[in-house]
Design a binder for these strands. Structure first.
Lengths: 147, 147
DNA sequence: TTAATAACTTGCAAAAAGCAAGTAGTTTGT
DNA sequence: ACAAACTACTTGCTTTTTGCAAGTTATTAA
């Protein structure tokens, strides 16, 4: 076996990722923020998959402690909090898009359009930028318009 | 909000991925195959994280049912089975490498070398090919040499 | 100032994970 | 040929985590 070529990639440590994203709810919280524009507790609760309130609270706390998410009071409504992705959280976009791309290719019930698959297959980096900017825009709007 | 531009990417379905990879052990099995050359039950059991035998059996079965893994008898030793990644499983390499890349950037205790980070940051597609070929080679060797 | 709302917390039942021990099919050694 | 060893599991039981319903607290609208 070719031992010391520069082409041998020995990378196995996934402990950090799995510690943070090793369960589906953490992933879904981030997905809801990125693609559904969720930034309030209630919005996550109302999201399709139906998280339990205690689980949601736990995951938001965990993601915040790990620096993927920030919390702040809604300046327009003091009884609401706003949750946003940090740079560290946004840096997960490539990984998440690769997972979505994989779904697009292998999920027999995938509903991803050809247009989207084209972007993921041929213009991946661009897709990452689009999702990122989309998110940043969205936040900007949500923050200044009360729910 | 820009509604109908071709740049609006509305992709949220991750149900399929999460159904298959929504827990850490499934991920770790695939990682062990890709990066540690695990292809036998015993090898997975002996891997660092310490899976319970019942959990491992369950996950290998699940991954096989979902078509990410195949099982066959070891032609060289009838009491052993060989587990291998299918094309569908190998197609997860980009996603896994993105997660590893993310770890490299954000895990304060990351042990990834600069060389590897260079590949992930600047030559991502090449890194995917390398990992893929590395795996395919490895299998070829393992299959024909008894444990 | 009463009612409603948002973001949680708590308590309990159900499901899943983790551990130890056991089992079935091969195979090696004598 | 037969006993001991090996590999890939399964089973039963304990512990942990999840999921659900019902509070609780802080803030705001009527």
């Amino acid at each position: 076996m070719t031992q010391n070529t520069p082409y041998k990639l020995t990378l196995c440590p996934m402990t950090y990722v799995l510690e943070i994203l090793g369960d589906k709810w953490s992933f879904l919280v981030i997905r809801d923020m990125l693609f559904k524009g969720c930034c309030r507790y209630k919005q996550f609760i109302e999201s399709d998959e139906g998280v339990a309130t205690n689980i949601l609270a736990n995951r938001l706390k965990k993601l915040t402690e790990h620096g993927l998410v920030t919390q702040c009071k809604d300046p327009a409504n003091g009884r609401q909090k706003l949750y946003h992705l940090t740079e560290k959280g946004l840096d997960l976009i490539p990984a998440i898009l690769q997972l979505i791309k994989w779904s697009g290719h292998h999920d027999p019930r995938s509903i991803l359009s050809e247009h989207i698959m084209y972007y993921l297959d041929e213009k991946f980096d661009e897709a990452v930028d689009i999702v990122r900017n989309q998110y940043l825009n969205q936040c900007h709007i949500d923050d200044h318009s009360a729910a």
